[in-house]
Amino acid sequence: MTEASSILATVGVLLGAIGTYLLLPQGRGEDKARASYVAGGLFASLGLIGFLALMTLPALSPLDDLIAGSFFYLFAAGAIGCGVMTVTSRSPVYSALWFAGVAVSTAGLFLLAGAQFLAAGNTIVYAGAIVVTFLFVIMLAQMEGKAAYDRSSRSPGRAVFTSFLLLWSLAYCLAGLPGSRREDVAATAAAEDRLRPGRVLGADFFPKAADAAPRVALERSLRPSSSLFIEGDPARPKPNVAGLGEALYTDHLLTVELAGSILFVALIAAVLIADPKPIGGAGKAA
């Protein structure tokens, strides 16, 4: 990895941490100075720009790539910016609104990564979640952000330090991968070997005999229904919903059953928790 990318990661994360710390509700709930908000927003934006600069620029030559790259930056900035605002908003109403921004931006990123069904599903599920959250905010928090606990945080300094230390470590690890800001490809050739996609690995790693035991095992584990592409050819992608359904109901059938069971158990738990009648009451009455 290069020095420049790690320095960029450090500076970006540090600026973001300072900005987020300034934006978080602090103290005993008294109103903060306007300069604090302005400085916090400035630092957080600088940190966001530094963090986005860590990413690889899109290819400029075909227009498709350029448009996709621009939308990637738009959605990435939207997701992270809305995330900061979700965490730092005084009022839970605004938090829920900003979280809707996060969900929509993530759906856009899903779309760019070729997961159309999930983009739609994410939007629908989280739109429902946001509506329910609004219901709860209107029902329970009538104070409109005037509550003391909305205007102060639990040890904001330590929390910001912990989270942004985690973010910095993750960015530091990712800065070791090859990218346009990280030109030192020769040093990372070994690292890229470990990150080769499974299908390429199967073709390259056991090339000798078609009936060699590891190769047969690998081919059995890499069933054709698990591939995003027809016959592994990236030029011919499968239709999204059909391919996802095929993989879901052949390779991952047990997962579907387990997910259904978990939903059922959670339904019972939620009913039992929220039931206004005491648990033993029904037996005594009868």
């Binding site: 963090f51 990435a76 997701a79 942004f164 985690l166 973010l167 993750l170 990712l174």
Partner: peptide, 13 residues
């Protein structure tokens, strides 16, 4: 790597 960076940022926030 770009996607992982955004995911890491969302997780940390």
């Amino acid at each position: 790597t770009n996607y992982l960076l955004v995911g890491a940022a969302l997780f940390a926030l």
